[in-house]
């Protein structure tokens, strides 16, 4: 039995469609990433799975329980960490953890082994009020609270948004550790670079899932050859490239500009000549390895 089944799920708010009849499955023990920009429908999907929202159409099951009919059972077996910190600011670290343990009818001691690695890092501050914790510590506390009842499915909504690079890396290491405890993890993120850490990812955009696969396979499926162009006038370069014929896509990527050509083989020399004429004496065009972000951009272009 899959850990999560989503079948033709649809949800709209007034005129905006947040989810357009989407379906997918998550296998037990998987670390499944839902990747997409803000407003793509990630939070809506997670709120349906955590029984906070009722879908307009379609079905969703968590561990075999229907999110509408069996919402009560689902609340016992899922752990949810919302995008915004939502523990009690005026309770201490220990009080928050104990409160969430007790309302799930368990104790900190009983499931301490699950959260040990995470909680140990904030345990020295356990008598500090949650509001006085740093961003990274708040996040560790939130994760501890979401885990304390030993959920079978853990749902994390943008846990790394607004967190510094070091804490983000630490956080993903924690998730990979948790996977070993047989917990299915669904995590959403707007950061494409985090996709590579998941077993499988769903790329989502404007309420539709464009692709679901393992990160490696998604990269393999990138359809064209990717080039990176670099000059010391990046903005002018972008404008000039857009005028060049037969390019399939042109978009800035870090300090360079990624381009793909409509045909498989692009005449690199011809492009460089064109750009030198346009006033880019130091132009440099080289083949590049696609990333998830490139795949995302490509899928987005296909869609429109």
């Amino acid at each position: 039995m899959p850990a999560v089944t989503v079948d033709q799920l649809r949800k709209s708010y007034q005129d905006t469609v947040a989810l357009k009849k989407e379906s997918f499955r998550v296998e037990p023990g998987e670390l499944f990433g839902v990747i997409g920009p803000d407003g793509a429908g990630k939070t809506t999907l997670f709120r349906i799975l955590t029984t906070l929202l009722v879908p307009d159409q379609g079905q969703a099951r968590v561990e075999g329980f229907d999110v509408v009919k069996d919402y009560r059972q689902i609340r016992h077996i899922t752990g949810y960490m919302p995008g915004e910190f939502s523990l009690y600011m005026d309770l201490t670290v220990a009080e928050n953890l104990r409160f969430f343990a007790t309302i799930f009818d368990t104790t900190i001691e009983e499931n301490y082994h699950l959260i040990r690695d995470i909680y140990q890092q904030i345990e020295p501050f356990k008598h500090r009020l949650a509001r006085n914790l740093s961003g990274g510590m708040k996040q560790k506390l939130a994760l501890s609270c979401a885990l304390i009842h030993k959920p079978r499915v853990l749902i994390l909504d943008e846990p790394t948004t607004g967190v510094d690079a070091v804490s983000r890396k630490e956080f993903w290491e924690m998730l990979i550790q948790l996977k070993k405890q047989d917990i299915t993890i669904l995590v959403s993120t707007p950061y494409m670079d985090e996709a590579g850490l998941c077993d499988r990812v769903a790329l989502i955009q404007q309420g539709s899932i464009m692709k679901i696969d393992s990160p490696a396979r998604i990269l393999e499926d990138f359809p064209r050859k990717l080039w990176a162009a670099r000059s010391n006038q990046p903005y002018k370069l972008l404008q000039d490239l857009r005028e060049y014929i037969d390019l399939a896509s042109v978009y800035p990527f870090g300090d360079s500009i990624h381009i793909t050509h409509k045909r498989d083989e692009m005449d690199k020399q011809q492009l460089e000549d064109f750009l030198q004429q346009r006033g880019h004496p130091d132009i440099e065009v080289a083949p590049a390895r696609p990333t998830i972000e490139d795949c995302f951009m490509d899928l987005m272009n296909q869609g429109t």
Binding site: L52, R75, T78, Y80, P82, F85, I103, F104
Partner: peptide
């Protein structure tokens, strides 16, 4: 306002 009700609503309370 603080969003804590969200966290409460996903518990069996």
């Amino acid at each position: 306002e603080m969003g804590t009700i969200e966290q409460i609503n996903v518990t069996p309370i």
